[in-house]
Amino acid sequence: MGDGLDLDALLVPSPQTSADKGNRGRRVSTGNAAVNGPDSYLSHQWKPAIIKACKAVITAEPTITHYDTVWGDADCGLTLKSGANAVLSGFDNQSNNLIPLDPQQPDLTMAAISELVEDSMGGTSGGIYCIMLDALAAQLQSIREEIPNDQGPTLKQWATSLEAALETLEQYTTARVGHRTLMDALTPFIQSLLAAASDDQASPRASLVKAVDAAYQGMEGTKKMVPRRGRATYIGGQDESDTDKYEMPDPGAYGLYTLLKGLLDASKA
C-alpha cells in the first residue's frame, strides 16, 4: 500500500442508520483523546490522505493567490496555505496529541483539525472551514456507537454526516450553488456522495472519484458565473465583457477542489 489510502477499507460500504442531528455545530472536546501508535489503522489510512491534501493546497497557493488577486483581495491562497501548514504541524507533534487518530472517534480528529484551522486561518474562508469541521465533528460524535469497530465510519455515515454539516453551514452563510463561491464545489461533492451511499454495494473509491469529479465540475462552472456573494462582488467586479477574468474559477472553489483531489490522489490506484 505504501503511502496510499485504501478507501475500500476506510469507507466501509455497509449501510448504517443515521443518528440524531441535535449535536450539530457544537465544538467537540479533544482533551482526553487517545492517540493510536504509528502502526494504528488511521495512521495508515487517514493520516497520509490528510497530509497529501494539505500538501496539494500548499503547492497550489500561487495559483489560488493569482485567481484571488483578480477576483478578491489576494489572501485566499495564503489563508488556505496557513491552515494546511497548521494541520501538518499537528501531525509533527503527535506526542502532544494534537490530532488524535481513533477509528471509533473520528469526531476527535475533525475537532482537532478544526481547532488548528481556527488558530491559523482568518477571514471568511477560515470561518467557513471551522463551521463545517465543527458541525461534522458534532455529527460524527452523535453516531459513535454505530461506527464499526476499528474501521471508521461507513460511506453512508460519512455522506450523511457531511450532509448534516452542510445544513449547519447554510445557517451561517447565504452562499449557495451558483453564487461563485466554494459552495459551488462543496455542495456537489456532498450530493454525489449521498447519491452513491444510497447503493449499499457502492464502491467507496468509485464513489469518491465521482464526488471529486462533481466538485471539479462545480468549480469549473464558476468560471462563467457573475459573483453573487463574497468580496468578488465589489472587488472582482461584474463586467462580463472581461473574457480573461471569466476564464478563471472562483479561488475558494478551486482551493477546496484541490484539497478534495489531494484526498483522492492519496488513495490506491
Results as ranks from 00 to 15, higher is better:
residue 257 Y to G: 09
residue 96 N to E: 13
residue 122 G to W: 01
residue 145 E to K: 05
residue 251 P to K: 00
residue 226 V to Y: 00
residue 25 G to F: 00
residue 114 S to K: 13
residue 185 A to V: 07
residue 250 D to T: 04
residue 46 W to M: 15
residue 111 A to Y: 01
residue 187 T to C: 14
residue 99 I to N: 03
residue 73 D to F: 06
residue 245 K to T: 06
residue 46 W to N: 12
residue 219 M to G: 09
residue 29 S to H: 04
residue 193 L to C: 10
residue 182 L to D: 08
residue 247 E to P: 07
residue 180 R to M: 08
residue 60 A to D: 03
residue 126 G to T: 01
residue 80 L to M: 12
residue 125 S to G: 07
residue 65 T to L: 08
residue 230 G to Y: 00
residue 197 A to N: 03
residue 37 G to W: 04
residue 201 Q to D: 02
residue 213 D to M: 08
residue 97 N to H: 11
residue 21 K to T: 14
residue 57 V to D: 04
residue 111 A to K: 02
residue 257 Y to Q: 12
residue 125 S to Y: 00
residue 79 T to P: 11
residue 175 A to N: 03
residue 55 K to I: 03
residue 188 P to N: 03
residue 235 I to M: 13
residue 171 Q to D: 05
residue 256 L to A: 07
residue 44 H to V: 10
residue 119 D to A: 15
residue 2 G to C: 12
residue 251 P to R: 00
residue 157 Q to A: 15
residue 226 V to D: 02
residue 72 G to L: 01
residue 95 S to L: 12
residue 134 D to E: 13
residue 36 N to Y: 02
residue 267 S to H: 05
residue 17 T to A: 15
residue 195 A to L: 10
residue 178 G to E: 01
residue 93 N to F: 06
residue 121 M to H: 05
residue 242 D to T: 04
residue 102 D to Y: 05
residue 65 T to E: 10
residue 108 L to F: 11
residue 256 L to W: 05
residue 117 V to R: 01
residue 244 D to R: 06
residue 8 D to K: 11
residue 46 W to Q: 11
residue 244 D to I: 04
residue 215 A to Q: 06
residue 95 S to E: 12
residue 158 W to V: 15
residue 44 H to Q: 13
residue 155 L to A: 08
residue 260 L to P: 11
residue 205 R to M: 14
residue 154 T to Y: 10
residue 28 V to D: 02
residue 151 Q to P: 08
residue 143 I to Y: 00
residue 102 D to F: 06
residue 29 S to W: 01
residue 118 E to A: 14
residue 204 P to D: 03
residue 234 Y to I: 08
residue 251 P to A: 00
residue 121 M to I: 04
residue 218 G to V: 06
residue 89 S to V: 08
residue 232 A to F: 08
residue 132 M to S: 15
residue 174 T to M: 05
residue 257 Y to N: 09
residue 213 D to G: 02
residue 72 G to A: 05
residue 172 Y to P: 00
residue 174 T to C: 08
residue 128 I to R: 00
residue 212 V to S: 12
residue 34 A to P: 04
residue 11 L to D: 00
residue 94 Q to F: 14
residue 53 A to M: 02
residue 152 G to C: 12
residue 50 I to Q: 05
residue 121 M to E: 03
residue 182 L to P: 07
residue 233 T to M: 15
residue 134 D to S: 10
residue 261 K to F: 13
residue 151 Q to A: 15
residue 248 M to N: 09
residue 23 N to S: 09
residue 20 D to P: 06
residue 215 A to G: 08
residue 43 S to L: 05
residue 59 T to F: 10
residue 240 E to I: 12
residue 266 A to G: 13
residue 181 T to N: 12
residue 107 D to R: 01
residue 182 L to S: 04
residue 213 D to Y: 00
residue 105 Q to I: 10
residue 123 G to R: 01
residue 179 H to S: 14
residue 73 D to R: 02
residue 32 N to K: 12
residue 230 G to A: 07
residue 176 R to W: 07
residue 104 Q to S: 14
residue 137 A to E: 03
residue 16 Q to L: 15
residue 269 A to Q: 11
residue 9 A to P: 06
residue 267 S to M: 11
residue 207 S to D: 06
residue 65 T to C: 04
residue 11 L to E: 01
residue 121 M to T: 03
residue 111 A to E: 07
residue 108 L to H: 12
residue 182 L to W: 08
residue 120 S to Q: 13
residue 62 P to K: 01
residue 53 A to L: 03
